[in-house]
């Protein structure tokens, strides 16, 4: 993040140029992404192959949509670590149901998975709003409970490709630009991700509920006095994060052709790292869809390129951890600068 900020570091906090840059974290993370791409590309030119770029973009989809949900929660000043469990529960229940009923299709299952995620998300909302409990503790509890109930009561064995509904797999395999990639096209799911991102962006910037999320992140009391309905907003936030997670879970299953109830353990760390890298402040009130998408892109770029750069994959956790800390420190520094 520092590379684009360095020229203005010497500027005073009240200089308009610095303030302009500080309020646009997209510039920092975007610059980081460009630098990383140039460096990785010069170490191994195979990076620039269309096939590699396509698979990189495909790898953005799942983390990206989950990150949109986490970003909404963090904009309001909360945090969510339950979404991987919700995503997997929605996926596994939906696919189990489809197999039990002999149903095959795409639209209805995705609607069901989204509904499951929404309901689970509303439970988070109930605890956070109704019982005034810290979101981290609530989501730690709901996530563990949902995962435990899924594995203990529904099933712990994975559903392999031979039993997966064919229409779902067919949907996950859709791709385009096949002529460019030399056989492997760009996954159509990237378009779905972009569409969801535009939707969330419009919701945040141009609707009343979007403004109330930012207001809540700034200060709950201020939001209340300004006339925003805090209860509706909190239920909306956690419901939306759950719905996005549920939808992503089924998408994940259809993209890897396997429904594994033990999947996605620990993915919350990658997603939170990406959101923080994208400039979203955990104190709430600051962040953007563009920044989050760039954060996801950069994180996936760095972790996926370890192999291409001949670095052992055991280093992946150290990279992710360092990103969380550095990005959070930079965001905190920025917030203090803006406030100063």
């Amino acid at each position: 993040m520092s590379n684009t900020l360095t020229p203005v570091l010497s500027g005073r906090a009240d200089s308009p140029r610095l303030a302009w840059v500080l309020k646009r974290p997209e510039l920092g993370v975007g610059g980081l992404a460009v630098v990383a791409m140039v460096v990785i590309g010069s170490i191994n030119p195979a990076f620039w192959d269309a096939a590699n770029l396509f698979s990189l973009l495909r790898a953005n989809v799942i983390t990206g949509i989950l990150a949109l949900g986490v970003m909404i929660v963090m904009l309001s000043g909360g945090i969510d670590v339950s979404f991987p469990a919700f995503a997997i529960a929605a996926m596994y229940l939906t696919i189990k149901g489809m197999i039990a009923l002999g149903y095959d299709g795409v639209v209805l299952p995705f609607a069901v998975a989204t509904m499951i995620g929404l309901l689970l998300g509303l439970i988070n909302g109930l605890f956070v709003y109704g019982l005034r409990m810290i979101p981290l503790i609530v989501t730690l509890g709901t996530g563990t409970a949902v995962r435990g109930l899924l594995l203990g009561a529904v099933g712990s064995s994975q559903i392999n490709i031979d039993r997966m509904p064919p229409a779902l797999i067919g949907f996950g395999r859709l791709e385009f630009l096949r002529s460019v990639g030399g056989g492997n096209g760009l996954s159509t799911m990237v378009v779905l991700y972009a569409a969801l991102a535009v939707m969330v962006h419009l919701m945040l910037r141009h609707t009343l509920i979007g403004r109330s999320i930012f207001a809540l992140g700034g200060s709950e009391e201020a939001a209340r006095r300004a006339g925003f309905n805090v209860r509706t907003t909190i239920f909306f936030i956690y419901g939306m994060a759950g719905a996005l997670a549920g939808c992503t879970g089924l998408l994940h299953g259809s993209m890897i052709w396997v429904a594994n109830p033990r999947d996605m353990v620990g993915i919350e760390l990658d997603v939170i790292a990406a959101v923080v890298l994208g400039g979203t402040s955990i104190f709430g009130g600051r962040g953007s869809v563009m920044g989050t998408m760039l954060g996801v892109f950069t994180l996936v770029l760095l972790t996926n390129s370890l192999i291409i750069m001949h670095i052992d994959t055991t280093w992946q956790r150290i990279v992710t951890g360092s990103i969380v800390i550095l990005a959070a420190a930079a965001t905190s520094w920025r917030d203090r600068r803006i406030a100063a």
């Binding site: 945090i79 939170i272 790292a273 280093w315 956790r317 992710t320 360092s322 800390i325 420190a329 520094w333």
Partner: peptide, 21 residues
């Protein structure tokens, strides 16, 4: 001035990562 949640999530990853390496 990193929030405790993010600081310790990040450092936990690094500690585990060092152990893994």
């Amino acid at each position: 001035r990193v929030t405790p949640i993010l600081a310790t999530i990040g450092s936990g990853q690094i500690f585990t990562g060092i152990a893994l390496v």
